[in-house]
Amino acid sequence: MCGIISVIDRSKNYMDGGAIKNALALMNERGSGEGAGYAVYGAYPDYKDYYALHVFYDNIVEPKEAVEELLEKWGKIEYAEEIPTYEQDRLRKQHIPWRYFFKPDIRLLAGTCSPEEDAIINIVNKVNTEIKGALIFSSGKDIGVFKASGWPEDVANFYRIEDYEGYIWMGHNRYPTNTSGWWGGAHPFNLLNWSVIHNGEITSYGTNRRYIESFGYKCTMKTDTEVVAYLADLLGRRHELPEELSVKALAPPFWDDIDRMSENERDLHTALRMAYGGALMNGPFAIVIAKPEGIVGFTDRIKLRPMIAAESGDRLYISSEEAAIRTMEQNLDRVWMPSAGEPVIGMVRR
């Protein structure tokens, strides 16, 4: 059991983090005080062309030196600083969070059509698997993830989340089972421009991991949420599937329903299931995936986890609970309960 909430302002009006803090804290029944986190899109307008790398350091001696050496080898650090934090009674600093605004040198990488992104993925993999005492947990442009082990309000106050502004917000209140409540295991999970919040457990993880690894991704984070980000990246970025079809590949309609579709649709969904069987996610989940263009929320094929959506003007909300949405916005134009596997999509207006 976990609590999730996300909001997008489709006209890109910025919202501060105060409201989502209260919404997430309202769902404390769904957490255990061992992990909470926030993601905000639009966090770093002054550095929006640089990858914002957030790193947890166990100490700022050896691991920091090793990370900075690696970054300088691979590109240029435009600016670096400790992420400001404010210790709470129930939340002490277990790691020292640092941030770098970084640009990789694309001349250093061959054999790829997205050298910047692949360089960042390489760096994230290398730091997270090889450098002891360092963990990169946020690596997108103009995106910031802030998380820790603690209750949502403590984590928010620890980072003073209300000081950040953005047009997409995500929050996650964790009840850990698979991995202990370590800081890196809190959600949102982020890689490049993708962020994921996830309530549930993926019973097909073994299949999904083997599938995604055969495309060159490496699962290093001990959490099934990571695989969701990679699948979204593979289907959305590399295979260029539109969001709604990506969701249909990840949580497809049942064959019985496909058999009843019109010929055109039947062929499409049959092809998706045949090609992306290894990407199909099983088990109970409600997930929201974000990228700079928007958010997509969906549940497993038989909706074993709750998910509710609401709209108010340009704002679209997706959450585990309606009450949480109502703490953020009293006057909702529409509230609805999406069916199993049906995507809820909110994209910024162009």
Binding site: T203, T207, R209, L280, N282, G283, R301
Partner: peptide, 16 residues
């Protein structure tokens, strides 16, 4: 029993 409702999710799922 393993929480899987489609054979694709069993295939190669050695974690189970």
């Amino acid at each position: 029993a393993a929480g899987i409702n489609s054979i694709e999710s069993l295939r190669g799922n050695r974690d189970r």
